[in-house]
Design a protein around this nucleic acid. Structure first.
Length: 220
DNA sequence: ATGTCGATTTGCT
DNA sequence: GCAAATCGACATA
């Protein structure tokens, strides 16, 4: 029987998310497909950029050293759930909760390459959603997929937000590493190479060298 | 109660 | 290149 024939068989299972090494999961998520079915629209994209955050010994993580708030509570639950939080009061950032209950790890999805239902994603992004700007950033992709803070806690083995294996393989040599973006306040922890991206993929949010993906990028 | 800051994006000078 | 937008969390009172 061929693999990946039905949506259910392609969907990542709880065991994937319960793996103990959040950095390794961040690498493995490259090439997987993030999907939502919201308001009757299926939209999706290939994950091309991720960042690892650990609840222990990581000052960049919202749940560092056991910090519990209403916002971070979901990270202490079982892996395979969404952690969505509001950044700068405006942007909804989507994370995948990993590890077992009590261990608050998460992977931030920073960029996707659009796959299913480009028209609907463009509609949701409006005038600013042209070219690679459609989904080349953590706040942009959530808007294209219509993921919001109200979705925090959503079970990723359900049928609203999930991640699929569609057989896309990213060879190790094509995976780039860098420090995480925008966490300079975390001191030495900010220097860890916990950001992973597909090399030479134009949908990645920032080019090597930390230059913001910008106005010169045209696509589609 | 008030002030500061952020895992960002957008628009304007 | 710079600043505004705007809310949750934290520090201070």
């Amino acid at each position: 029987m061929p693999a990946f024939t039905s949506p259910e068989s392609r969907k990542l299972a709880r065991t994937f998310y319960e793996q103990p090494d959040v950095v390794e999961i961040s690498r493995q998520l490259l090439g997987k497909v993030l999907c939502t079915r919201i308001d009757g629209h299926l939209t999706s994209g290939v994950i091309v950029e991720t960042e690892a955050y650990s609840g222990r010994d990581d000052r960049a993580c919202h749940a560092n050293n056991g910090l519990r708030t209403p916002r971070t509570e979901v990270m202490y639950g079982p892996g395979g759930h969404a952690y969505v939080y509001l950044c700068y009061g405006i942007h909804h950032l989507f994370n995948v909760v990993t590890n077992h209950t009590g261990l608050a790890d998460a992977v931030l999805i920073r960029a996707i390459e659009p796959l299913d239902n480009l028209p609907e994603m463009k509609l949701r992004r409006g005038q600013n959603g042209s070219g690679f700007g459609l989904t080349n950033g953590p706040g942009k992709l959530t808007r294209a997929l219509k993921i919001e803070t109200a979705d925090s806690g959503t079970d990723l083995t359900g049928d609203r937000i999930w991640i699929e294996e569609r057989g896309i393989v990213i060879p190790g040599r094509e995976i780039g590493e860098s420090p995480r973006i925008g966490v300079e306040y975390a001191g030495e922890h900010a220097r860890r190479l916990w950001r992973f991206f597909v090399r030479d993929n134009p949908w990645v949010s920032r080019l090597p060298g930390n230059a913001p993906a910008g106005h010169t990028q045209n696509g589609l």
